[in-house]
């Protein structure tokens, strides 16, 4: 039985035929749509490497059945930069060396964007650390990640003030 769903991926509406209802959103992105920026670290919701924005909210794509997402909108790491311009969070990650091996980085960045959108952390480093604790980094880049999130938040706030 093939299930058909409609999915908006990085702003583009796509008709997706699922020959197998077992396909997770993560495996759909990586193995069928070839958007491999989203990483699989544990496949069990325990590391955060697969974080995407699902209908605007940060979510572990490994624990989402694609078949259940008809009509949903997904933003992945590939969908952030606009016109070759890095998203402020992406730039801040580079500036603060908030990455080493880079494998957890797409998930960290998507999680950071989700965190900023949630608006709960403010400029409190402790709330940022707590809010980013769903993304493991084995290289130990947490200090830079926290700095980057705080810096990006300031940049985004400045941008909004200017607008």
């Amino acid at each position: 039985m093939t299930l058909s769903i409609s999915l908006t991926v990085n702003g583009t509406v796509q008709a997706v035929a699922l020959e197998d209802p077992r396909v997770t959103l993560l495996d759909l992105l990586r193995e069928r749509l070839h958007l491999t920026g989203t990483k699989k670290g544990c496949d069990r919701g325990q590391c955060g490497a697969c974080t995407v924005l699902l209908d605007g909210r940060r979510t572990n794509a490994c624990l989402v059945l694609a078949a259940a997402q008809d009509g949903a909108s997904v933003t992945t790491i590939e969908g952030l930069a606009e016109g070759g311009q890095l998203h402020p969070v992406q730039q801040a990650f580079i500036d603060h060396d908030a990455l080493q091996c880079g494998f957890c980085t797409p998930g960290q960045i998507m999680s950071a964007i989700g965190l900023l959108a949630e608006g709960q952390a403010g400029d409190d480093p402790e709330r940022v650390r707590e809010g980013m604790s769903g993304n493991l980094c084995r290289c130990g880049a947490y200090a830079g990640i926290t700095e980057a999130v705080l810096d990006a938040q300031a940049r985004l706030a400045a941008r909004e003030d200017a607008a």
Binding site: G45, G48, L54, R57, R58, T59, L63, G114, G134
Partner: peptide
């Protein structure tokens, strides 16, 4: 409980 990602879902 869990992480922000899991709590969102």
């Amino acid at each position: 409980g869990a992480s922000a990602q899991l709590r969102n879902a």
